[in-house]
Design a protein around this nucleic acid. Structure first.
Lengths: 346, 346
DNA sequence: GAATGCCGTGAAAGCGCTCTCTGGGCAGAT
DNA sequence: ATCTGCCCAGAGAGCGCTTTCACGGCATTC
């Protein structure tokens, strides 16, 4: 037992100090009307004087609200020292989402609880915890195509929304980017600047966003009579961008315009092009995707498709909040339109 | 009022299902001994049957433990749409720390609550909330030299520890990297490979880690008779690395070895060197700092000083946890030793 | 002047849990 | 056979808060 155990003031203490009842203090603090303005004043003074801070646990025990929203990262399988998770956290992707979520939570005084679930057991436990009220809702990052979490969340009736379209059809709200439109933007721009022999370095085939970017690029090209173009599949890493470009140019040396499915790969591609002594954009034009810091750090700076991740994460959070307020709300999806950011590379 | 309001099972329900008292169920669930093994079995079956999940709020109301640790990012001033905060979240630095913290919290089933405090009022409120039990302890990232939070936390007797040495002397635990030793490592390596005219691109002068890297580099050089070397102050960004290197080479064209205070700047420096047609490492050797993804993505790949951020964040978390268990523990600091990672650039 | 309604306040129940305290049963000691 | 001690289970208090309910006072209405 600690000696310096100074009991923290409770509502009761404030009530005594203010000469009113506990109920009145509670009403004042929670801004319930029907309180005499004079008492109002007195109570706040008493709060200040006692240094009272409400006990969250006690409050949420009765209100059944935790004042917390969970940010859930759901991966199919992952241990703690999983190198994938390491990479995931180190990638700006994660941080940008946190930033976006925080930007809407912070002004409302809502807490953010971070949850990583890497296996089925953890998922079940999470759903139980959420259902029981550990958090009022959840912003979900589902990283694997056959993740069962969205469905479970849905079944449990938990207020949740996904960042990114669910890989499988589930009646759950989500926010996504029109990735195909982004691919189209890249195609139009490349064509517009006179490129005639285009190629693409795609992301991993199983990632929905990858597929959509490819599809959009392909359709836009088709609309302009280009029935086919070479592609090489990359892995969204710098390294893979570099090697994929080398591979592409080896097979199709006359390519004069490349759409690369993310900026990091594009940065690698630029480096590869340099090693091949191809000038950018004169010999080969390059368009990236994301408008991440890599786009600004590339030389020449990348013309790229802007992916407003922060805004999307913020919107997802708003969706969750709305659903917490009114669980009857219908499932909703919000699709953001990408914009082309023109810089030097194309 | 919702129609489908199915009351979630409580301890009482489990007790009834198991034919025992609430107290016994509680004991079983919390693994307290002195329970008949037979009952033990029966109770767990009842838990399964009812789908019981403990109510965290109720539990922490009585235990005065929240089972949560806060990760606090304390900035001197910041609004929500502050571009600095945007950059901060997008930087791998943030994510790597989150990853490190999670790696120790997750196995123990402890929650992570993220807190951003950008002004004095928020800081005071945070200290109040923590003191009241919102979280059992805090891992703190103090981003500004005259941040008052460490002192406040200390005064309030909150279990906390900093990632990175506090800028001002405060009796609070922290984990840091021997940045000066890292600078020395860089110096020794550069000297060892035969460089004789060294230069350095430093980080912002007001950042403690920056100063230490410079100091370590300088002292090691002095020990080898190099009384002086040119420096240019950068801002830890790619761009500033590029321009700082150009500036350095303009003033001191004969420099044959550069220590750059972080990898991102080093990556920029490499690009600048390329534009100057200086070969790396033949004409100019470059050593970075951090061993971040930028080191791997640079061409040539960077020889750099490894900054084990994840491990440090994990250790900080352990310090906090230890202090939660025993608040009487003395204030402790853990200093990690950097290691040189030799790649191509030097 | 009596009845009605409303508003502001306090009393008290109760959210779901932990944990102390009490008591019953049984083994071993006297 | 009685007593002592121990072990295990249940009763119940109480954590700090919100919220319903009851009530007294005052204004309004018939």
């Amino acid at each position: 037992m600690r000696v310096t155990e100074k009991r923290r003031p409770t509502l009761e203490d404030v009530a005594e100090a203010a000469g009113v009842s506990r109920a009145t203090v509670s009403r004042v603090i929670n801004g319930v009307r029907n309180v005499d303005p004079k008492l109002h004043e007195i109570v706040w003074q008493a709060v200040d004087a006692t240094g009272y801070v409400p006990n969250r646990a006690a409050r949420s025990l009765v209100t059944r609200r935790s004042g917390t929203v969970a940010l859930v990262v759901s991966d199919a399988v992952s241990h703690d020292d999983d190198p994938f998770m390491r990479r995931f956290f180190a990638d700006p992707f994660f941080g940008r989402i946190v930033g976006g979520v925080m930007s809407v939570l912070r002004p409302k005084g809502i807490q953010l609880a971070l949850q990583i679930v890497g296996n089925e057991e953890a998922r079940t436990r999470l759903v139980g915890d959420l259902g029981q009220g550990q958090a009022d809702g959840a912003v979900v990052l589902s990283l694997h195509p056959d993740d069962t979490l969205p469905q479970q969340l849905c079944d449990a009736g938990i207020a949740a929304a996904l960042v990114g379209r669910p890989a499988q059809p589930v009646p759950i709200s989500y926010v996504d980017l029109a990735n195909d439109a982004g691919g189209a933007l890249a195609a139009e721009h490349l064509l517009g600047r006179g490129c005639t022999r285009l190629g693409m370095i795609t992301g991993p085939a199983h990632v929905p966003a990858s597929q959509d970017r490819l599809t959009g690029f392909r359709q836009a090209l088709a609309r302009h009579g280009h029935a086919w173009f070479p592609t090489v599949e990359g892995g969204f890493t710098y390294e893979s961008g570099e090697s994929s470009l080398l591979e592409l140019m080896r097979q199709y040396p006359t390519v004069d315009g490349v759409f690369v499915a993310n900026d990091l790969m594009a940065q690698g591609a630029l480096m590869a092009l340099r090693s091949l002594d191809r000038r950018v954009p004169e010999d080969v034009a390059v368009v990236g995707f994301d408008d991440s810091s890599a786009a600004l750090d590339a030389r020449p700076q990348l013309t790229t498709v802007r992916h407003p991740l922060e805004d999307m994460a913020a919107e997802t959070t708003r969706l969750v909040l709305a659903r917490i307020d009114d669980p009857g709300l219908r499932v909703e999806s919000v699709i953001f339109d990408p914009k082309l950011v023109v810089r030097r590379s194309a």
